[in-house]
Simulated assay, not measured.
Amino acid sequence: MLRAALNRLFGMLVVMALVVTVVFVIVRVTPGDPAAVMLGPDASAEDIEQLREKLGLNGTILEQFANYVAGVLRADFGQSIFLGQPVTQALMDRAEPTFFLTIFSLLIATAIALPVGILSAYWRGSMFDQAATALAMFAASVPSFWLGLLFIQFFAVHLGWFATSGYGGPGTPLFERLHYLVLPAFALGLVSSALITRFTRASMLDVLNDDYVRTARSKGMGEWRVVLKHALKNALIPILTVIGLTAALLISGAVVTETVFGLPGVGNLVVSAVLRRDYPVIQGALLVIAGLYVLVNFGIDMLYLLIDPRVRY
């Protein structure tokens, strides 16, 4: 088990090294002077030279790369051009809405998808199965931002149950802030539940007719105990995989949803940085999102070792 964990950890470090290299190269291959691109056509030569010095673009490529890697290892992603603060601080200030939105969306998606997928597989070919499959296909094709706009129109504007946008003021209690996340979390969670539902159904169908399931039934074990304890446990590997991928995609895919609901999260920060050509913020956000993506997948791999002993061998 330790060897498997070390192998996956080594693979994670290799992936992050590649990500750091790619993010570094992106700015350097930008047509023209990166500093001039960031500041726009109205910038003076003096402003451009100052920014080049600030970004460390005056040294050789190897010097720039060494300084960049050293900064990344210190969690120093540079200084935001427009916010006038370190990129790390800007990301931390915006992390709370994105973190809770991702968690709530994943909980909603899992709470819907697991029971629906299990029941759909158990009642294969029934009206419930056909309806669940059709709804999953429909949910997978619905853009989350469009669903969010419908939620705003109905639940916020028409019924007045929720705010149309925002995340509360600086002194707003955390519980009240979380109230602002209900609509965006459901918009993301409903769309994300479609993929988990389909994978749960397919995985359960693969194991429900296996010999050990028939043996458990022949011993007189309760039907739902057979389904949940024996079948579901052996079907969890692909289900956990898709849940992990969904969590990682939610982290990076909340950009549009946060913009629609006016949430001051990392996604909104990235959109503003792209519009302003604030490359240090874009680079820092890419590294953080990629790092979280890799960590989530590493955590799922570790769960494999705990759930299924066969993976250890």
Rank of each mutant, 00 (worst) to 15 (best):
F77H: 01
I103L: 12
V266A: 06
V227C: 00
A202R: 11
L178T: 12
P34Y: 08
V29I: 15
F298H: 03
Y293Q: 07
D76H: 13
T21C: 04
V72K: 04
A247P: 01
M204P: 03
A290W: 10
A140F: 07
L188A: 09
L135T: 14
I108D: 02
A121F: 07
V271A: 13
N209Y: 12
A254V: 14
L190G: 05
N67D: 14
V116W: 05
G299Q: 04
R217Q: 14
V182L: 07
L236D: 04
A231K: 05
G148A: 08
L306A: 13
M1F: 10
F186E: 07
S126H: 04
G253P: 08
A109R: 11
A43S: 07
M137R: 13
I196R: 08
G267L: 10
D129L: 05
T110W: 04
T102L: 03
L181F: 03
A248C: 10
I81T: 08
V274M: 10
V142I: 15
A136Y: 01
G78W: 07
L306D: 00
L9I: 10
L292D: 12
G171I: 13
A248Q: 09
W123P: 00
F77L: 12
F175N: 06
S126Q: 02
G169E: 13
S252Y: 02
L119Y: 09
L114G: 01
V142M: 14
A273I: 15
T200S: 05
